[in-house]
Simulated assay, not measured.
Amino acid sequence: SAEEARAFLEKLKAILQFIDVSDCKMQEGSLRADVNLSVRPKGQKEFGVRTEMKNLNSFKAIVRAIEYEAKRHVEEIESGGIIYRETRRWDDDKGISYAMRDKEQAEDYRYFPEPNLPPIIIDDEWINSIKKSLPELPDARKQRYIKDYYLPEYDANILTTSKVLSDFFEKTLQHTDNTKAVSNWIMGDLMRILKERELEVDEIPFPPEYLANLVSLIDKGVISGNIAKKVFAKMFDSGKEPEAIVKEEGLEVVTDEDAIKEVVLKVLESNPASVADYKAGKTKALGFLVGQVMRATKGKADPKLVNKLLVQELNG
């Protein structure tokens, strides 16, 4: 199927990256794929006539091309038409393929031995020596992430789809022990921003250490999770350290109990209906009130302290 072809190519791409054969940037021509496709009626042993589409430059285009060409073959055969052995061009904008030239038979290529290229004998000893020299491959690294870092298989799969991404993850862990938090940031906000800004992983404008520092700021309670998202976006904009951004923007978590209590009292006064709901046993009202306090403090109040003070006032 088209999705099986995509899965195969994604695995191949990862392996090529991990052994440093290529950066596999398809948009730059480092990796391309030809699609050779034929169909046959169910139960027929012989393969159908094959067509080829050359130099596809994205996995998305490959999937679309396979789906289109398979459908074209089926419709042509079922309508009594003939599939010709030919090379076709895939037009990704229009979502169609069209014939370029007839496909040559083997004899048309006029193969002959090249006298300047001697035979190369590849023995088992040489093959085994190459195997031993290979670096850690994607599947092995994935299993290590699951075993050593206790990551879910889903996380490990995502993090090992690209060597550059995997290396970024590992370098980040050199500066923090919060493995799951780093994984979540990479799979969530980092991948989202890269997609939105059409950037590659190797174009991240800050070093892995900065992501580790951001995670540490959250763990230490210096900033909240919501504020961290804003800081992370600004890291992409400026390339600055998260500590510098927090200081410049005044984003530290407010832990002054008196200051937060003042906001809490104002929120309670402004929301009598929610106060009544809470006292009537509707505990969801507390979440609403917490949200109002956080909004009033622009997300900078310590959420735990906000919750504590609200409960004290509501139950007092």
Rank of each mutant, 00 (worst) to 15 (best):
I193Q: 09
M187E: 12
D167L: 10
V222E: 08
E203H: 01
I218E: 09
T176W: 00
G188Q: 04
L214R: 11
L194Y: 05
L159W: 01
I218N: 04
I223G: 04
N157S: 10
L194P: 00
I193A: 04
N157E: 15
T176E: 00
V164A: 14
S166P: 01
R197S: 03
I223T: 08
V201H: 11
D202T: 06
F206D: 02
R197G: 04
I193C: 06
T160Y: 06
P207A: 10
E209M: 12
E170V: 10
S166Q: 09
T179W: 01
G188P: 08
L165P: 00
D202A: 05
A212C: 05
N213D: 15
L199W: 14
W185S: 06
I186T: 08
S162P: 05
E170P: 02
R197C: 04
L211W: 04
K195Y: 07
K180W: 10
I158E: 13
L194V: 08
T179D: 00
L211P: 02
D219R: 12
K163I: 06
S166M: 09
Y154H: 11
L190P: 04
I193L: 13
D202F: 10
K163C: 10
E200Q: 14
I218R: 08
K171Q: 15
E196L: 15
A181G: 09
D202H: 10
P205F: 07
K195T: 11
L194G: 07
E203A: 12
N157F: 10
N184F: 08
N184R: 15
F168K: 08
E200T: 06
L190S: 06
K220P: 06
S216P: 03
E203K: 12
R197W: 02
I193F: 07
L159H: 04
L217E: 03
S162F: 00
E170F: 10
V182L: 09
F168M: 03
H175S: 06
